[in-house]
Each structure stands twice: as structure tokens, then as C-alpha cells.
């Protein structure tokens, strides 16, 4: 009796786009853009490159929508296209880079959002410490090979299940686990000062390791995706 307004699923929107609906892809993208942005940002390391990579992915997804076979969720496919676009850019940059990109250097100094601390931290000193710590983590993350970085961004940062991360990265589950493991091991070396501090008294050391609001669950048990806003 009640004419409940049907909210099309992602798959329906994608099909509508393929069928010629001019608004469908925009609606689909709007649903997922914040999370796609987060993944692109953390994978690329700075806003400008993230926007470029995301744009590449957007254009590719728009144009290749007809090739989506429904083997995975639409959002997984979207992430795959965007992550691949980002990785393509990273690889191309690595090939041609003879010197550090200006963006890479600038990033360390003037881009707040990379080190964005959206948390409501009352103590400015605590806030500064946490921001500095995030910067260290992100700087260390950027030194990893792009495949390891992408795996860690998806699994440890974004909370994707390993299986879904594998689908996004188009590789085996074991490969994702291996990349994550190697990446974490390398990060543990790079971030040793933070880890050492955390092993002391995490509440009294100046560069203390923050205590996560929720415990990090095992690799196979995802924290779950963030609420889309």
C-alpha cells in the first residue's frame, strides 16, 4: 500500500548507465566517492595525485561499465578500477622519475588533509603529537612498494576483508596477506621509534602511540567499512 520509493542498487544504477541513463553513473559515483577518495588519497600520498588518479578511474569506470560482469560487487569493481588507475600512475611516475616529484616534497610541509586529524582532540599537545605521528606513518607508508601500500591501505586502513581486497587488487588472497605482512614488517622497522614508545607507557611518552578506539581485529576479520556519509 505504501509506495515506498525504490532506491536503486549499485548494480541497477550501473545497468541503467549502460542502458543510457545520463544520471545513473553520477549517482553511483556519489554514493562511493568519499571512500574512493580516501583510498586514492592514501594510495597516492597527496591530494593532487589522488584527484588525478581518481579522475582516471572515474573515466575508465564510466567507459568500461559495459564490461562489468557482475562477478563482484559494483563497489568492489569501482575500487578496483580506481586503485588500478592509481597504481598505473604510481608505476608510470616511478619509471620516469629521475628526481623526487615536487608534489612529493611539498606534501611534507603544506597539505593539511594528509595529516588530517578529524578527531576531536581536546589537548592541543596531544593533537599535535598525533598529527606528527600520522605524518610519520604516512611518510613511511609512501616508501613501500605500491602493491604493498595498496594492500595495507585497503586492509589495515580501510578495513576491507582480505578477500575483498584481493578482489579489488585482482590477486589471490594469499598474495594480499603476503603483501600486508611484508609491508607491516617494513613499517615496523621504519616506525620503530613509535613502536618503542608505545611499548613503554603509551600515555606519558611525548610521541606516544595512540590507543585505537577499537581494537584492530585479525586480518581475516574486517573492521568493516566506514559508514558512508
Amino acid at each position: 500500500m505504501s509506495e515506498a520509493q525504490h532506491e536503486p542498487t549499485d548494480a541497477e544504477l550501473l545497468a541503467a548507465h549502460v542502458g543510457g541513463d545520463p544520471d545513473a553513473f553520477g549517482r553511483l559515483f556519489a554514493r562511493h566517492r568519499d571512500r574512493l577518495w580516501a583510498v586514492a588519497l592514501r594510495t597516492m600520498g597527496n591530494r593532487d595525485d589522488a584527484a588525478d588518479g581518481l579522475q582516471d578511474g572515474l573515466v575508465a569506470a564510466y567507459r568500461r561499465a559495459g564490461t562489468f560482469r557482475g562477478d563482484s560487487a559494483v563497489t568492489t569493481w569501482l575500487h578496483r578500477v580506481v586503485v588500478n588507475a592509481c597504481l598505473d600512475r604510481l608505476r608510470a611516475a616511478k619509471v620516469r622519475r629521475a628526481e623526487p616529484l615536487p608534489d612529493d616534497l611539498d606534501e611534507r610541509g603544506d597539505r593539511g588533509s594528509l595529516r588530517s586529524a578529524t578527531d576531536e582532540v581536546a589537548d592541543p599537545a596531544d593533537h599535535a603529537s598525533r598529527t606528527e605521528q600520522r605524518a610519520m606513518v604516512l611518510d613511511a607508508l609512501r616508501t613501500l612498494p605500491e602493491e604493498q601500500r595498496a594492500a595495507l591501505v585497503l586492509v589495515d586502513m580501510e578495513g576491507y576483508p582480505v578477500a575483498e581486497a584481493a578482489a579489488i587488487l585482482d590477486c589471490a588472497v594469499g598474495t594480499v596477506k603476503s603483501r600486508c605482512s611484508r609491508g607491516r614488517a617494513r613499517l615496523a622497522e621504519l616506525l620503530a621509534p613509535l613502536l618503542d614508545a608505545a611499548e613503554g607507557d603509551p600515555h606519558d611518552t611525548p610521541a606516544r602511540n595512540p590507543v585505537a578506539s577499537t581494537p584492530v581485529e585479525p586480518t581475516d576479520a574486517p573492521r568493516g567499512p566506514p559508514a558512508t556519509g
Binding site: D34, W37, A38, R134, V137, L187, A188, L194, A198, G229
Partner: peptide, 28 residues
């Protein structure tokens, strides 16, 4: 390992939670 767990915690804490910036939305 404990170190890996700490790394995971640090990564989780460095996650980006903000929406896509307006200028990027406009551009896309």
C-alpha cells in the same frame, strides 16, 4: 607479532575519514 599489531593500529589511526574536498567533487 606485537609489532605488527602496533603497525596495524597506527595505520588504522592514519586512515582518512574526511569527505572528498569540494574542489575535487566539482572537478569530477
Amino acid at each position: 607479532t606485537p609489532a605488527e599489531e602496533q603497525v596495524r593500529r597506527l595505520l588504522a589511526d592514519a586512515r582518512h575519514d574526511e569527505p572528498m574536498p569540494a574542489e575535487v567533487v566539482d572537478r569530477l
